[in-house]
């Protein structure tokens, strides 16, 4: 293929840069806003840049007065636990559904697909009843449990497991490997990218999950970051926008760091599954 004319390239890059700038503008506003005082945000016409980038009072207030340290710890615990359980169990389920013959495996897969189609809000009250019966109200365990195996993860792993050659697994079986050895030593190393995809999707879901953690928590010690952010931003008679924006940055930061490290898998995961 011929190289495009330099002018065409220049125009394309120009347009892309413009598009990127437009997409980034709201984020820039959030970032700048985090360093503004309430008066600066409410004043007209609002300036783009804060008067003083050294004004980190919003961030200090979040951690010193609004328990953000606690919320962040809770969020990290919940998200890590969810990622571990989802990756492990979804991979196992995906392997079983794709590679093992057992009675009713089509039915099980159908159940997984059906579960994906039920709006989560419909399960809310029954789920909460179960949690109450288990005596787990107001625990982080109760936040993790309903998300411990998400059907979407099982679906992704099952589709990916299908592409692993069955011959490879059979060869191991002939060589005398047990089912667990095949799973951990042969299968797992081959499905790394899919596991990363599931891990990322799960992390994003559980990191941003708002309603369920709010329902389960009975006091603020068990709030996660999104719940804490919703509470902290509410000032007397109006929203405290400085706090809200600073909080948004705090919530966003771990995801951003994760993205920088796992960029390749993010793109692969979204392109490969068509799900984001």
């Amino acid at each position: 293929m011929d190289k495009p004319h330099p002018v065409v390239t220049a125009v394309l890059y120009g347009l892309l840069t413009l598009g990127a700038l437009i997409a980034l503008l709201p984020f820039a506003w959030v970032l700048f806003g985090a360093f503004k005082t309430q008066a600066e945000i409410m004043s007209a016409p609002g300036a783009w840049l804060p008067q003083n980038f050294g004004n980190v009072s919003n961030f200090i207030a979040l951690f010193a007065e609004r328990m953000f340290g606690r919320y962040m710890l809770n969020s990290l615990i919940v998200s890590s636990a969810t990622v571990v359980t989802n990756v492990l169990f979804a991979t196992m389920a995906g392997y079983a559904l794709a590679k093992l013959e057992f009675p009713g495996h089509k039915l099980v897969f159908a159940c997984v697909l059906t579960a994906m189609m039920v709006p989560y809000i419909a399960l809310f009250v029954p789920q909460f009843f179960i949690i109450v019966q288990m005596g787990l109200v107001n625990t982080l365990t109760a936040i993790v449990l309903p998300m411990a195996v998400m059907p979407i993860g099982v679906f992704i792993m099952r589709q990916f497991a299908d592409s692993v050659p069955t011959e490879l697994l059979e060869a191991a079986r002939i060589d005398g490997a047990g089912e667990f050895a095949i799973f951990f030593k042969i299968f797992l190393p081959l499905v790394g990218p899919a596991m990363a995809t599931v891990a990322i999707i799960t992390f994003l879901n559980s990191w941003n999950y708002f309603l369920w953690p709010l329902i389960v928590a009975q006091n603020q010690d068990t709030y996660t970051l999104p719940v804490g952010l919703a509470v902290a931003s509410q000032g007397a008679k109006s929203t405290d926008y400085g706090l809200l924006l600073a909080g948004a940055i705090v919530v966003l930061l771990p995801v951003l760091i994760l993205f920088l490290f796992l960029q390749k898998y993010f793109v692969q995961g979204i392109a490969g599954t068509g799900i984001k």
């Binding site: 009843f129 708002f210 309603l211 709010l214 329902i215 009975q218 603020q220 509470v231 509410q234």
Partner: peptide
């Protein structure tokens, strides 16, 4: 316990149910 205002009803309704 502080509850985010816009979800207050949802949380209380669920709590009433349970």
């Amino acid at each position: 316990t502080q509850i985010p205002s816009d979800q207050f009803d949802t949380k209380l309704l669920t709590a009433i149910a349970a």
